[in-house]
């Protein structure tokens, strides 16, 4: 697999691995059948994401995109974070091989889900498609808990 140096760096040395106890929002995407699951935890203070951690079962690209998305969101407002697209995640990694682009969907969607989870829990307004990009085109089955 031809991964960029940036992807390999994030794969070999993933940032922000772990869980956040009492996270304000948790987003889980993917399923084991497809070969990748990402669980993203975020802490929110005054509308700003102050911490993010992840756990991922998946290939090199899935782990690297998970790591990258945590780096991208920390310090962002909820609005800014919601706008982080899968392309932005892939671009920040110096690109992904075409067959691995779905891994970047996973990370961006887990982020949207985590934000949705936070808004939902706190009675904030949510749009239907705030939740995730892929529920609109059904790329991965969503694990319901």
């Amino acid at each position: 697999m031809d991964y960029s140096d940036k992807v390999m760096d994030h794969f070999m040395h993933p940032r922000n691995v772990g869980e956040i106890k009492d996270a304000d929002g948790i987003g889980e995407m993917g399923n084991a059948k497809c070969g990748d699951i990402m669980k993203l935890y975020i802490t929110i203070e005054d509308g700003i994401i102050t911490d993010a951690k992840f756990k991922t079962f998946g290939c090199g690209a899935a782990i690297a995109t998970s790591s990258m998305v945590t780096e991208l969101v920390i310090g962002k407002t909820l609005d800014e974070a919601t706008k982080i697209s899968n392309k932005a995640v892939a671009d920040a990694l110096g690109g992904l091989p075409p067959v691995k682009m779905h891994c970047s969907l996973l990370a961006a969607d887990a982020l949207r889900r985590a934000i949705y989870d936070y808004k939902n829990k706190n009675g904030l307004p949510v749009d239907d498609c705030d939740e995730c990009e892929t529920c609109c085109h059904d790329h991965h089955d969503i694990v319901e808990e």
Binding site: M1, Y3, M8, F11, M12, G35, D36, F57, G58, C59, G60, A62, I63
Partner: peptide, 9 residues
């Protein structure tokens, strides 16, 4: 609990 490509890399 883990995926093959990660091991290969």
């Amino acid at each position: 609990y883990i995926e093959g490509e990660g091991m290969l890399l």
